[in-house]
């Protein structure tokens, strides 16, 4: 066919889509703003629910997208996307122009900047870290606080930047709960003598095997769950974090000294995605993610003909869902080409 597709973003969705498109005989250009492909998967230690090593998924994606028909361009973000007849012209920040017969948008998500919730003290108190920071500690193999010691008591705050009208995110990021459970277990694996407390508003264990993981955290690892949204955190002179929270099930305010506080940062529309939306005319929803043409039948379809969505650029998704969504996007691209050739 000789058709050329540009995939924007070489994370899980982008690599999966690129690989599948090339298998269908299409020429693919894969654009990635970072210097390496992989996206967020590069930052994770293990994946829930089975706690598989994230490297395995990364290797799978690299294999899939290492095809001569795929040209990977790293360090390239899209400045402009304009329609020219039946094709699109993409201009990168380096000024390079690329023509595309179809575009797959796989710009992914950004993690909520935890410093925006000033009352939690991220970026202010040394021992308040984000879930992404904790993954880095897991990868380094050493979980220590600012004093160089291992933390005795760890607090995990759910819903940081999700389900929070105050930061403009009404939606649930839906993966932070399971991430918290997974991280709680991993903390206990690393530091068997430590105590872990999860502060949650609701436990949303909707995915396959999530509930089982939750049960395992209680049963096998003795992780504590306290229902209450953490209101504020402060620091003591010896560097401990004091959280103020209502134990809503006990009906009383609870104060607790904690050695390390981990904030479960939610997922937001990526900056690259927002920029693309602003310059291309792609529609976004109230949650600022890209808006699909139809929630049920057209979740890959955008308001621009020939531009398709793949992965978390439309809503929070886990890796499994992201891969499925990227494959669905490929199906839409193929159908688009076959309809247009008729």
């Amino acid at each position: 066919m000789g058709k050329h597709v540009v995939v924007i973003g070489a994370g899980v969705a982008g690599m999966e889509a690129a690989g599948r498109l090339s298998r269908n005989g299409l020429e693919v250009t894969l654009l990635e703003k970072e210097s390496v492909a992989g996206g967020h998967i590069n930052d994770w230690f293990r994946l829930f629910p089975d706690r598989r090593d994230s490297n395995e998924v990364r290797e799978y994606l690299i294999n899939l997208s290492s095809d001569p028909k795929i040209q990977l361009k790293t360090g390239a973000s899209v400045d402009k996307l304009t329609r020219h007849g039946s094709s699109y012209l993409l201009t990168t920040d380096a000024g390079e122009n690329i023509n595309a017969d179809a575009v797959v948008v796989a710009t992914g998500f950004s993690l909520f900047r935890s410093s925006r919730k000033e009352e939690y003290g991220y970026g202010i108190y040394e021992n308040v870290i984000s879930s992404a920071d904790l993954e880095k500690l897991f990868i380094s193999g050493e979980i220590v606080i600012s004093s160089g010691k291992a933390p005795q008591r760890i607090g995990i705050v759910h819903c940081v930047g999700s389900r929070d009208e105050k930061v403009g995110n009404l939606y649930c990021s839906k993966l932070c709960c399971v991430t918290a459970v997974k991280q709680a277990i991993e903390i206990k694996e690393h530091l068997p003598d430590s105590e872990v407390f999860c502060f949650y508003m609701d436990m949303r264990m909707g995915g396959a095997l999530y509930e089982e993981l939750y049960r395992e955290a209680q049963e096998k690892w003795g992780v504590n769950f306290i229902r209450g949204k953490v209101s504020e955190a402060s620091e003591t002179i010896d560097g401990k974090i004091v959280v103020k929270v209502e134990d809503t099930l006990a009906g009383r305010p609870l104060k607790m000294d904690i050695d390390m506080l981990v904030l479960m940062a939610g997922m937001e529309m990526s900056e690259g995605g927002s920029k693309l939306a602003a310059t291309s005319g792609l529609k976004t929803g109230e949650n600022r993610f890209f808006a699909s043409a139809d929630h049920h039948f057209g979740s890959n379809i955008s308001n621009l003909e020939g531009v398709f969505f793949a992965g978390t650029c439309i809503a929070p998704m886990n890796v499994t869902e992201t891969i499925s969504h990227a494959r669905a996007a490929v199906t839409e691209v193929m159908e688009y080409f076959s309809n247009n050739n008729r």
């Binding site: 009352e119 209450g228 953490v230 929270v245 209502e246 305010p253």
Partner: peptide, 18 residues
């Protein structure tokens, strides 16, 4: 009923008020 209000409450620190 997340309890965010009562966790930070100035009065709730001293008395049963949630």
């Amino acid at each position: 009923a997340c309890g965010g209000c009562s966790g930070s409450c100035s009065a709730g620190n001293f008395t049963r008020f949630s």
